[in-house]
Each structure stands twice: as structure tokens, then as C-alpha cells.
Design a protein around this nucleic acid. Structure first.
Lengths: 138, 138
DNA sequence: TCAATAAATGCACTTCCATTGCATAGATAT
DNA sequence: ATATCTATGCAATGGAAGTGCATTTATTGA
């Protein structure tokens, strides 16, 4: 069982207080968050720091960016089952039109998509929109 | 064979010179375009007019908006095979990482996506990214 | 035909988010 | 201890979406 510090170091991310806080924040969230969400959670911190921290996490492949069609970038920690570096490992995201939350459905793999001759597929972005379990239960 | 004027009228869109020009511009494009693309094509026209024209076309279901993950909205004319009003008629889009163009693959339908219990799927957005036929041929 | 009405267009803003440059603080290594 | 590199904070920029209002253009009906 690694500590977060050890985990970050193993990914070549230098450990700072801010980065630990942001990591923990992401870890306890069950949904993808926007930069503003993080900003609101850490009002003392500068927006740029948060932005660059997320970008660092993204580069080091411990966070993936999600484009759920709201026009605002969202981010989520990569889980055990999620290997963002590996392009064939693509899961889908669910965006709730009611609560506006976006959830990684890590266990749901994206089916193989055929493209016409001459086209080379490198990446697939799949977002399902609708009503999430929490909202549909109301 | 309808004229464009007749077609627009049949969709309850009032015909204006500007709208005809924008329609023709979209029609001759084989790829999805951004508002800026349209802006550059019609430098004399105001951006707001172009924006609202596109929105009108979208409401009247002769144009569909595409979110290809670049963060910029793109638009394309609905073709014969494309019935955007019908939610089950979802085709996929291909975004070329090389030339940055986005193409509607109208004939490629999106497979049925299963979501977990409690989730209600209303809409699906699928974008495949890679290299398009033109760029891969180089 | 002309006035009254409604829709389309143009201009000026605003807002929101992403991103960058630069100066400073803090950590690392020699 | 100091030189060096990285992280952080502040300020500013830029791009795109969207809105309010005045004006022009088109439509309708008397």
C-alpha cells in the first residue's frame, strides 16, 4: 500500500502541499470536476497553480481530461482500471443533464468503431447524456 | 428539385440574402465549420448575425452542432440521411488531428450503448480522432 | 399605398474559461 | 552556502459564447 507521496513520486511528480491537497480532493470526488470546482474548494490558492497542477497530473497520466459537451473541461483521477496512456483503453463518460455532473464509467469499454478506408482512428471520445442514477431515482 | 429558397421556407425560415449565402457556404463545405470560419468567409457581415443565423438553422433542424473535443463548436448542414430531430438517429464525427477538420460520417451509426441501472440515456456524442483520408494519403 | 407590426441585422458589451509572461518563493543539488 | 531548477502567485491576454438595444428591412392589413 503506497502513500500518496510515494505514488506521486513514482510518477515523477514532485510532492508539494498543494499537489497533495488537490490529489486528495480529486480522489474523494466521485465525479469529474471543473477547474472552477477546484478553485472553489481552495479559495486561498491561485487559479494558475491549480490549472498547472492539473496539467502536470494530466501529463503524468494520473488525471484525464473529459470533454462532456458542456464546453467546460472536466478532470478526473485515473483509476486502477483506467490506463489513459494506453489508447486502446477507452472508457465512456456519462453526463447528467439534470445535475450537470459527469461520471466516468470505467468499466464500460467503448466498442470498436469502424471508420472508412483511409481514416486512421487514434482516439475515441464517447459521452452519453441523460439522467444519472441519483436524479432518476427522485 | 427544390430551390434553396423553397427549402428554407418549407422549414419556416425566412429567406434573406445573408441566410442564403450562409446556407450555400455550409453546403459547399464538406466539413464542419466553426463560427470563425464563417466569419472569415463573410468579413462584411457581423458576427452576431452569423451566430444567430446558425442558431436559427439549428433550431429549425437544418444544421447540427458538433462538439469534437477541440473546445470550439462546429456546425454542419444536416444531409438527407441525417435527421437530427430524431434522437435515435445519431451518427459519428471524425476529427483529424492533423488538418483539424471535422467530418460527419453520416452513414456510420452509433452502436447501442449500455449504461448501468438507474441511468437513462437520452443522447450520445461520439467523436473518433485520428488522421483523415486526405492527410493519411500524404 | 401607407402605416403598423414583426423579424433580421449591426454594434457594443459582458462573461467565462483557457492560457501565458514574468517575478518571486521554495526546494534540490553540488 | 550558493547556484539552479521548479512551483507558485499575480496580472494580463485572447478566444469564444452570449445578450441588450437600436436600427434597418420585410410583412401584413387597413
Amino acid at each position: 500500500m503506497k502513500t500518496i507521496e510515494q505514488f506521486l513520486e513514482s510518477k515523477n511528480i514532485r510532492v508539494t502541499a498543494m499537489r497533495l491537497l488537490i490529489y486528495k480532493f480529486l480522489a474523494e470526488k466521485q465525479v469529474a470536476v471543473t477547474l472552477s470546482d477546484i478553485e472553489n474548494a481552495f479559495e486561498k490558492a491561485d487559479r494558475t497553480t491549480l490549472y498547472r497542477t492539473i496539467k502536470t497530473f494530466e501529463e503524468k497520466a494520473i488525471v484525464h481530461q473529459i470533454d462532456d459537451g458542456t464546453g467546460i473541461n472536466k478532470y478526473a483521477l485515473c483509476e486502477k482500471g483506467c490506463n489513459c496512456e494506453i489508447e486502446t483503453d477507452l472508457h465512456l463518460h456519462f453526463h447528467c443533464n439534470n445535475c450537470n455532473e459527469t461520471i466516468c464509467l470505467t468499466e464500460h469499454k467503448i466498442p470498436q468503431i469502424k471508420v472508412p478506408d483511409g481514416f486512421v482512428s487514434e482516439n475515441v471520445n464517447l459521452v452519453v447524456k441523460g439522467v444519472c442514477d441519483k436524479c432518476s431515482g427522485q
